[in-house]
Computed example of a mutant assay.
Amino acid sequence: MSKPLIEVKDLKIHFPMKNNILFNKEKRFVKAVDGISFVIHENETLGLVGESGCGKSTTGKSLLRLIEPTAGEVIFEGKDITKISTREMRDVYRNMQLIFQDPYASLNPRKTVGKLIEEPLLINSDLSPKDRLDRVYELLDVVGLNAYHANRYPHEFSGGQRQRVGIARALALNPKLIIADEAVSALDVSIQSQILNLLRKLQQSFGLTYLFISHDLSVVKHISDRIAVMYLGEIVELGTKIGLYDKPLHPYTQALLSAAPSIKSTNRRERIVLEGDMPSPVSPPSGCKFHTRCFAKMPECELVRPQMRDMGDGHYVACHLYK
């Protein structure tokens, strides 16, 4: 296993709520991320999966400090970037980039594609105009577009082509870590596979490391080396994709996988239907946050928060079933 590129330790992101009740001075918080820890190694893809509202995208943005963490550490190449200044973060941004979910909203419609890709180079490099243009053409070629596309505007492209432009822009400064936030969820299924294959090819060519955020289990399985399953601001299970898909341990992971469609009848699992909705992150349940919907809950689950346990072979689970 290669050395860790980024380590996240007990990360918390709590958003304060406005108090609308007269004379009630108690502060309330939305606990979007509530104490998660994980490591991503060099040249690895870690998939982060879970239901909408579980805190996946908030986690990704906090690694870039687009959202400031409430507590915890984000150690990138040996340095805790939560404690450095905004000026120092500019150097970090060269090595950490984000691919946005929406290929339509993430590109400025008033600028040509060439200008959009050139912008990071203009701000962060001393390249001459000719060298910047050569780099733009090179990046367009790398993501499967042509040089003449540089003079076109975003509205002249399809969704898949726009996402390729977003990937080219993310690659402009030769980053080490790319956070892909639902990078293919807005695309047709046939286009999704093209973008996923492109991301894998780029990883092999440039030695990239990915945090791949998605709610689609089949997509995560296709591209990830390891997978972390998130529920209501916490990671409940983490393991290799083979270990996690072949032998899911946490009841929530089992329910997610049972709902995933499969072409092969031999791979289909008995459907597990979860009752109720995800609780509010403002007032999460005590003990295990999943106990209100869990089909295997015990009395202890309502009182004690389970700790992450090492089950061997790089498989970890936070559940009282595995003491």
Results as ranks from 00 to 15, higher is better:
residue 309 R to D: 01
residue 288 C to D: 04
residue 305 R to I: 11
residue 305 R to M: 12
residue 308 M to Q: 08
residue 282 V to M: 04
residue 273 V to S: 10
residue 288 C to T: 04
residue 297 K to Q: 13
residue 293 R to C: 07
residue 280 S to P: 00
residue 298 M to Y: 06
residue 283 S to P: 03
residue 288 C to Y: 00
residue 307 Q to N: 12
residue 271 R to M: 15
residue 299 P to K: 03
residue 277 D to S: 12
residue 296 A to Q: 14
residue 282 V to P: 02
residue 281 P to A: 05
residue 300 E to I: 14
residue 308 M to T: 11
residue 269 R to T: 03
residue 311 M to K: 09
residue 303 L to D: 15
residue 282 V to Y: 00
residue 300 E to R: 14
residue 283 S to G: 08
residue 311 M to F: 09
residue 277 D to C: 07
residue 282 V to Q: 01
residue 303 L to K: 15
residue 294 C to K: 03
residue 290 F to R: 00
residue 275 E to H: 11
residue 292 T to Y: 00
residue 299 P to M: 04
residue 290 F to P: 01
residue 286 S to I: 05
residue 269 R to Y: 05
residue 302 E to K: 12
residue 269 R to M: 09
residue 277 D to E: 15
residue 291 H to F: 08
residue 271 R to Y: 12
residue 297 K to P: 02
residue 296 A to G: 10
residue 277 D to P: 05
residue 274 L to Q: 00
residue 297 K to H: 14
residue 309 R to F: 08
residue 277 D to G: 09
residue 299 P to T: 04
residue 301 C to L: 07
residue 268 R to S: 08
residue 311 M to G: 04
residue 279 P to N: 07
residue 286 S to A: 11
residue 301 C to W: 04
residue 280 S to M: 05
residue 274 L to I: 05
residue 293 R to F: 03
residue 309 R to G: 07
residue 280 S to R: 02
residue 291 H to A: 00
residue 283 S to T: 13
residue 277 D to W: 00
residue 308 M to P: 03
residue 286 S to C: 09
residue 304 V to Y: 10
residue 300 E to A: 13
residue 273 V to K: 12
residue 305 R to L: 13
residue 297 K to Y: 12
residue 303 L to G: 06
residue 269 R to Q: 10
residue 281 P to V: 02
residue 294 C to R: 02
residue 284 P to Y: 00
residue 283 S to H: 13
residue 300 E to Q: 15
